[in-house]
Amino acid sequence: MPTEAEKQENVNWRSASSESPEVTLRDRLSEYFEERIRKPALVAWSDGRTRIGLLIMSVYIAMAFVAVFDLYRAPSTNQAPRLETAFQSLDYPLGTTMSGVDLLSLIIHSTPDVLLMIIAGGLWATVIAVIIGTLAGYKGGMVDRVLMSFSDVMMAIPGLPLVIILAVTFNPKNPIVLGILINVNYWAGLGRSLRSQVLTIREDNYVEASRTMGMSTPRILLKDVIPNLMPYVTVNFVFAARYVVFASIGLFFLGVLPFSTQNWGVTLNYAYSGGALFTWQAAHWLIFPMIAIMGISLSLILLGQGMDRVFNPRVRTRLAGESESTAEEGDSRTTEVL
């Protein structure tokens, strides 16, 4: 998102100023960096939740690197003694499975696909939602009605069963396709709430001003509207990503999704069907994949919460319509008390 926005700044400068381009550009970029990246980043970092979230996430990113660059052995059957419990040997610190696979290598080598999947799913959900939400909210009229009816229908289809049927039908193997498939209709609800935010933003003075100045709709959307949605979108990206984790692993665990990709859910499924339920001996086989799942979703939730705090110091009012009078009086009130 920052690169995209930086590009916009670029475009603005080119069309708007002709006198001292270098200085303006540098000033604008540095101001942009200060206002939109450095300050929010500092605030975010000051929040303990963001810090812990990032820390946990970096562990997963490190695991993905290890897997991609093959710094740790790949999982294969009979590479180790069968069903060794955890913390028994340095060779297989997390123990092994029934078929003699090192559990640690299973978990590490699942990471890249999981990360790809959640990024794909999160991007899909948020990008589609932003496109649909801003178009519907800004254009209004027929466009709005058609897009919102479409969203309503999409929203009414229960996500998980739909995904299951789609998965059986299309049998996707690519983690990116999988991520998109899982969030195939996740964008609908988000698109709707973005639309109502756009409806309030478009009435704001500066948007009004841009319109009066004869700026084109795409430019107003890019310059005035979307940057204001970004905080909300970022937070929801994280939540969409978390949904991908929950749903995908659940579906892998059920055995709905093809086992061609490595995934903690697949490991869980093998443990479950391999009889790990019946004996304490195999508990580690169930528990470590679970920890991997919970870790990444915990990190996503913490990041979401931390960012939410950065972007909305006040809890966002759910009901957009009632904010007309509160703005003025809220102002004087706070200064009064301070």
Binding site: R49, F246, I293, L300
Partner: peptide, 16 residues
């Protein structure tokens, strides 16, 4: 927050 990060099926499998 910790509870939110546990998928229900993990709890289900553990409970079972």
């Amino acid at each position: 927050i910790s509870l939110m990060s546990i998928p229900f099926y993990v709890i289900a499998v553990l409970a079972l």
